[in-house]
């Protein structure tokens, strides 16, 4: 009988313990990005642009060169990084409060221009770091500290479905929404992250991947309940799928 290592930490993930709450799936999301980049031997060429939110300390957890962007401005910062270093692999890692609220203009324009970057968007339907306020992606009826009676569609509107919106913009080569709540969805997420980087490497346009994740603390649930909530409530509002994927041989000017 021989014993082989079936799963261990990928070298680009630092040993530093994360500050995330128990059950927070940020750890899974950024680990999967690091696993892809290590598998493709791209770690040395990667520059990540981190954002504001619970993922703000990402530069302590992933061993890539990084730039910390002002709140919401990661796609604009990444545009600059990629344009001066077009041979680098550039990705942004943003939460929903960062990308879909204060950073809405930046993501819309970067996507429309078709910047050759990858956007990893972690959607947990709430502002995590600041204490659970209503985010643009908060579900209708979801209670948050700023919508104690639940989000009302007629006064606050319906949640933004970013993967679909971004897919509708001309410069986007790949846009998908995946979840991190079970092993089957993790396999889909791995595939989507790979495609989101492949379109950047092929110079085809922006790769966008939305990852549905839990926020047990601000949802006021246990991690296991929050994980079940993804399947029961989040996925029905935010359907999973690939919303745009241009052909592999499609060129760019």
């Amino acid at each position: 009988m021989s014993e082989t290592l079936a799963f261990t930490r990928t070298p680009s993930v630092a040993e530093t313990p994360t500050h995330y709450c128990p059950g927070c799936q940020h750890g899974v999301a950024h680990r999967m990005v690091a696993e892809y980049l290590d598998a493709e031997n791209l770690a040395e060429k990667t520059i990540m642009v981190t954002s504001i939110g619970c993922s703000v300390f990402l530069y302590n957890y992933l061993r890539f060169d990084s730039v910390e962007a002002p709140h919401g401005r990661a796609p604009a910062t990444a545009t600059g990084v990629k344009r001066v270093s077009p041979d680098k692999v550039v990705f942004t890692y943003q939460g929903d409060g960062d990308l879909a609220s204060i950073g809405m203009a930046e993501i819309m324009h970067a996507a429309n221009r078709g910047e050759r970057i990858t956007v990893v968007f972690v959607n947990n339907t709430v502002y995590g770091m600041t204490g659970g306020q209503m985010a643009p992606t908060t579900l209708v009826g979801q209670k948050t500290t700023t919508s104690p009676a639940g989000r009302c569609a007629s006064t606050e509107g319906a949640p933004f479905r970013m993967a679909e919106i971004v897919a509708g913009l001309g410069g986007v080569a790949f846009s998908a929404r995946v979840a991190l709540n079970n092993v089957k969805h993790l396999a889909q997420a791995r595939k989507a992250i790979r495609r989101a980087f492949e379109v950047q490497l092929a110079g085809q346009g922006m790769g966008f991947v939305e990852l549905l994740a839990t926020c047990p603390t601000n949802w006021k649930m246990t991690p296991v309940q929050a994980n079940e909530h993804i399947e029961a409530a989040i996925i029905p509002t935010f359907p999973l799928g690939v919303f745009k994927d241009i052909a592999k041989n499609a060129g760019a000017c």
Partner: peptide, 12 residues
């Protein structure tokens, strides 16, 4: 794969 904190190493 599910562990957010990379606390598990698997030997097969």
């Amino acid at each position: 794969q599910m562990c957010p904190d990379l606390a598990i190493v698997v030997w097969r």
